[in-house]
């Protein structure tokens, strides 16, 4: 089957843009088939044959089985992100249908960023102060960047919480 691999980078707060791009590819006849680090492999499909969705979700076999029962196909996983696709003929495909679950998704992303950011901060401080490998600045840079990402995710969450004051 005709296939192609595209390298592309998305910031963590741009996961909706990533999803929109994957659906644009599907609309143009390229269905996501597997994922790698900043790499997406596509196979030929009929234009608009698939809807693609991605979310951050801890590894959970029963969740994937649950999704498959609803007609979705599990495409793959890259770090904490999982990718699904579903034939458009099998109905509308969304992962979340209310504000509460969108907020808990953002909270999940926030927790991972906090954990990884905190670890980098700690390693960075230790490397800068004690061990002096000269590489501590890399961790501190990562920590700064991860905290910035956390801020972006938090902003999205606040917008949803404001919306939730009026409806669900």
């Amino acid at each position: 089957m005709e296939s192609k691999t595209v390298s592309k980078w998305f910031w963590v707060w741009d996961f909706e843009k990533e999803e929109a791009w994957l659906n644009e590819m599907a609309a143009n006849g390229w269905a996501l088939d597997s994922v790698g680090f900043c790499k997406y492999r596509f196979v030929r499909c009929a234009p608009g044959e698939y809807t693609v969705r991605t979310e951050m979700h801890p590894f959970d076999e029963s969740y994937i089985r649950f999704m498959e029962e609803t007609g979705a196909e599990y495409v793959g996983r890259m770090m904490a992100w999982i990718y699904f696709r579903k034939k458009t003929d099998n109905g509308v495909f969304d992962l979340y249908s209310d504000i509460d679950s969108r907020i808990s998704h953002l909270e999940r992303i926030g927790r991972v960023l906090t954990a990884v950011g905190g670890a980098n901060l700690l390693i960075g401080v230790i490397n800068s102060a004690g061990v002096r490998t000269g590489l501590g600045w890399i961790n501190l840079l990562c920590a700064t960047f991860l905290m910035y990402s956390l801020g972006r995710i938090h902003g999205k969450k606040e917008a949803l919480e404001k919306e939730r004051e009026l409806h669900e």
Binding site: M67, E69, T70, D94, L95, Y96, S97, D100
Partner: peptide
């Protein structure tokens, strides 16, 4: 019912207005 059955029943009862997405349903 199983998960998918809940999605179908909900959509049917609400005449297509309420569509539970799978991730939302799983969490709930």
């Amino acid at each position: 019912r199983h998960g998918y059955g809940i999605m179908q029943q909900t959509e049917e009862m609400s005449r297509g207005r309420v569509r539970l997405a799978a991730g939302t349903l799983y969490g709930a």
